[in-house]
């Protein structure tokens, strides 16, 4: 996953729900220095009894915001959605920078 264009990541999930698996795997895809490189990652864990679906809110470097409902998505689909915009940003950066 391309993580260098993400500035804000806000995750909400209930670890005891089997559907929140993709949320937890999403967190594990960040490199260990992601926070040091300027990505703010906040994860909020819901209590065990809550029925609230797992959700993800992302802000990109160009200001685009993205909200995903992780309950119904597999991790590959989540990564695909996030990477789609990251790739356009990467291309722009490449064209401008070099």
């Amino acid at each position: 996953m391309i993580t260098r264009f993400l500035t804000h990541v806000h995750l909400t999930f209930n670890p005891f729900s089997p559907r929140s698996k993709s949320a937890r795997v999403f967190l594990s895809l960040f490199p260990s220095n992601a926070r040091a490189n300027g990505t703010q990652i906040q994860s909020k864990m819901l209590p065990r009894t809550s029925k609230e679906p797992a959700s993800l809110a992302i802000k990109f470097k160009d200001g685009k915001e993205m909200k995903l409902d992780l309950d119904k998505m597999r991790i590959t689909e989540v990564v695909e959605e996030v990477d789609r915009h990251s790739r356009t940003l990467a291309r722009k950066e490449e064209l401008l920078g070099n």
Partner: peptide
Amino acid sequence: LEPLLSGP
């Protein structure tokens, strides 16, 4: 505990 047991 099963839902917890996934991921690292």
